[in-house]
Design a protein around this nucleic acid. Structure first.
Lengths: 207, 207
DNA sequence: GGTCTATTGTCAAAAGTTGCACAATCATAG
DNA sequence: CTATGATTGTGCAACTTTTGACAATAGACC
């Protein structure tokens, strides 16, 4: 195909396909099929083929998909055929975990700087060796560096204000770990992660 | 109404409504409307009314929703009108962050135990004071305690095996932080959190 | 070269989800 | 006690997403 305007729900599945492909590659596999991917991911094979068809034709009839080829294409589509600097705000336990997370590097991301408001933390290093900077300098630093992606790992009552600062400084993609729904201009993409929300989704199904 | 079989996508929004209500309550507000909630959450007011209508009639025409009343009803619907013990596997940086996360208590969850495979960690305490136990005892401990909810915060290559152990021991709800898609029986609910997946979803929209 | 098997990409149908619009109704004010 | 304004719950229509089915075709084998 060649649609413009791919549904967001389709876009959201691509990183999962990419993750599965990288995993298969690490297993020295060279070819896979929509069937095999679907089985691994709990998704129907038709959906995988349909999703991919929004972006091109990546498979061969009778054979399937060349893993390395499809992986490269997905990386390109998702713009992770490059490294993205990410700015982290909040150097608490969660911030520490994110700063020292080894999984980002192989998937297109690099935590470029970390900020906090706590004077006891400012000037010290995070576990990964990153310097904790003063959140007062956040706006200026983001603007100067041109960072586009922010991760918010501050308490709920500070999150909206941090988000506003980041957006004001030019950030256009936010990953929010604070347990509130951020308000942002429609030009800014926001993803939210709240473990309690996920757990409560689960408990609905527990008698 | 009084449907049986509420769509899962509706269930997934309830925790977000609940979070917003708790937030409003903390602001000493007593009444709200579907309009106000929608504006705060970036959801249409009609959708909120329709979602709630699956479970009953909680509002008053002309007035709106009594915050405390709706909050209590949502807690009951989501089964978080009680505390749930949660078993945490993985005492790395992320496990530490989860164990010391203050946000769980007010929302129905208590990290009851933590396990790891690393002999250097076993027997020591996590930041929150929780003892790190040997993952070799995971199955027996889960079975004995009757825990139903597990959080997986181990590396990708250990995650499926941990999930299998938990499920074998009676866990029926899993929150998985490892970057792989877990396979589980259909009787087990799984939620996945992978920051790189969320970030890649965002970068699609970054030129 | 012809036959067989596997698997894609896509069309159309089915299923699911969202939004619109409005009667019903509650609270308030005159 | 009536008029006014606000806001719910819901039927229906519009829209979105998923599934099923199959022609097309690549590759393997005889």
């Amino acid at each position: 195909m060649g649609d413009r305007q791919v549904p967001d729900i389709v876009v959201g599945r691509l990183p999962i396909y990419l993750r599965a492909l990288t995993f298969l590659k690490a297993d020295n596999r060279e070819i896979t099929s929509s069937q095999e991917l679907g089985d691994r991911l709990g998704i129907s094979s038709a959906q995988i083929r349909k999703d991919l068809s929004h972006f091109g034709e990546f498979g061969k009839q009778g054979t399937g998909y060349e893993i390395r080829y499809l992986e490269n294409n997905l990386k390109e589509i998702l713009h992770v055929d490059r490294m993205w600097d990410v700015v982290l705000v909040g150097a608490g336990d969660l911030g520490n975990a994110l700063a020292s997370y080894k999984g980002f590097a192989g998937r297109g991301f690099h935590v470029a700087a970390a900020f906090d408001a706590d004077p006891d933390k400012i000037g010290h290093e995070m576990p990964g060796g990153l310097l904790i900077e003063d959140v007062a300098n956040l706006e200026a630093r983001v603007q100067a560096a041109g960072w586009k992606i922010g991760i918010i790992a501050v308490p709920a009552d500070a999150a909206q204000s941090v988000a506003n600062t980041l957006v004001g400084a030019g950030v256009i993609a936010l990953l929010n770990y604070a347990p509130i729904s951020l308000i942002a201009p429609s030009s800014v993409r926001v993803e939210q992660i709240d473990p309690a929300v996920h757990l409560q989704h689960l408990t609905y199904y527990l008698g």
